[in-house]
């Protein structure tokens, strides 16, 4: 049985690198990414699972990292916005002006990236369902939707 108590050292597979770090079992993945690993692309917009600004991919599926303990992510593949390298979603977001202040952008990008991996032919309904997980306060979502559609082979 896996067991963690007190301050423990774990190995996390993040962006195809194995990161050794000390954590406490009560720390969320969001906290560990930001405060222990310096990966601040995931944002603490609400820490309640409502806004999606902290979304990362766990085994290619979107997860709100504020609602996951870091210990839960041990042994799984974590992808954060910092792990994207010229991904189609990034280019699409730039081309479509799919952000203003940029604070929600990492989260939306990760949702779109996951969508393109898991449902490359997603229809409008599925695109909406996935994008509804996140809040953007600056745009009207039109540009984000256009960016999402542009990277799917529809």
């Amino acid at each position: 049985m896996t067991e963690y108590s007190g301050v423990v050292e774990v190995r996390l597979d993040i962006n195809n690198e194995i990161k050794k770090t000390e954590i406490r079992p009560s720390e969320t993945l969001l906290y560990v990414l930001r405060n222990r690993l310096g990966l601040t692309g995931a944002k603490p917009g609400c820490e309640n699972g409502d806004c999606g600004a902290c979304t990362v991919l766990i085994d290619n599926m979107p997860i709100k990292s504020c609602l996951m303990l870091a210990v839960e992510a041990v042994g799984r593949k974590i992808l954060t916005v910092e792990g994207l390298k010229d991904a189609p979603a990034q280019k699409a977001f730039v081309e479509k002006n799919a952000f203003q202040c940029g604070y929600c952008t990492s989260g939306f990008l990760m949702v779109c990236h996951s969508l393109s991996i898991n449902h490359p032919k997603a229809d409008d309904k599925r695109i909406s369902e996935w994008l509804q997980s996140n809040i953007c306060r600056c745009t009207c979502y039109e540009e984000i939707t256009a960016a999402a559609k542009s990277i799917l082979s529809r």
Binding site: T40, A42, K43, E82, L84, Q90, V94, G102, T105, S106
Partner: peptide
């Protein structure tokens, strides 16, 4: 033309006050 800081904002490099330690 795209925003000056566009690529920083799609790569997680854009820094906000709470990101600094």
């Amino acid at each position: 033309i795209s925003r000056k800081e566009a690529w920083d904002k799609v790569s997680g490099k854009a820094k906000y006050a709470g990101d600094y330690v």
